[in-house]
């Protein structure tokens, strides 16, 4: 293995660790919301500092790899993709942190009816599933799997679009639960962003493996 190959392998391992860290954050934020577990929410918020520190470390290692090894072709694309994926993952970490802040602010467990009507848990589960899929696509350099994420993201968009209506109706019937409902709506908006970040990560994986730029392309063009 050449020195550069060793550096690239190391970067990949670091980024996979970042995937793992962020996924754990997202799972814990889900648990803290369902059970209104404020201690768990606080734990996520403390760990957010670790996510930030990890982001800086990966950024620094990418900078060093470019400065010291002058990677070209697929190696260069890999390092550039790592920089962007790293930033996307950090934002997913922010989302988990943001949801936990809501958990700390709400006073009682979210209503089951509201969770069902908004399909909040389905959204959470899909987000975590998509994140796991992009991690696998990155780990195994699987661009087919990366492309499948574009389709799954549509489900998150659909839940997000219907959430307004569901929340409006719930508020109509439970005017005393306005705050809780708005917090939940805001969490749904955040989870929709997880799908977008995962989509961006998929684009970066395809960029580095196939040298194709999918940004700002239509869904059909992305699937091709």
């Amino acid at each position: 293995m050449t020195h550069l190959e060793a550096e690239i392998k190391n970067l990949k391992t670091e980024l996979l660790d970042m995937f793992h860290l962020v996924r754990t954050q997202l799972e814990k934020s889900r648990e803290s919301l369902v059970r209104l577990d404020k201690d768990l929410a606080r734990e996520v918020m403390v760990n957010e500092k670790r996510v930030n520190a990890f982001e800086l470390k990966v950024d620094r290692d990418c900078e060093n790899t470019i400065a010291l090894f002058n990677p070209v072709a697929i190696d260069l694309r890999f390092v550039l993709a790592c920089l962007k994926i790293n930033s996307n993952l950090e934002r997913i970490g922010d989302i988990a942190d943001g949801i936990c802040q809501f958990v700390l602010n709400i006073k009682m467990e979210p209503e089951k009816d509201l969770l069902e009507a908004t399909r909040m848990m389905e959204m959470f589960d899909t987000s975590i599933e998509i994140l796991e899929e992009v991690r696998l696509a990155f780990e195994n350099e699987d661009t087919r799997l990366a492309r499948s994420v574009f389709k799954k993201d549509e489900l998150l968009d659909e839940i997000n679009m219907n959430a307004n209506q569901a929340v409006a109706e719930f508020i109509k019937n439970h005017p005393d639960r306005i705050n809780q409902s708005l917090y939940l709506l805001s969490s749904i908006r955040k989870l929709e962003r997880v799908g977008d970040q995962c989509k961006n990560i998929s684009e970066e994986i395809i960029f580095y493996i196939e040298a194709k730029v999918l940004k700002h392309k239509s869904r059909e063009q992305k699937q091709a």
Partner: peptide, 10 residues
């Protein structure tokens, strides 16, 4: 070395 990239790499 006169080659700075080489210094970086090794």
């Amino acid at each position: 070395t006169h080659n700075m990239q080489q210094a970086g790499r090794v």
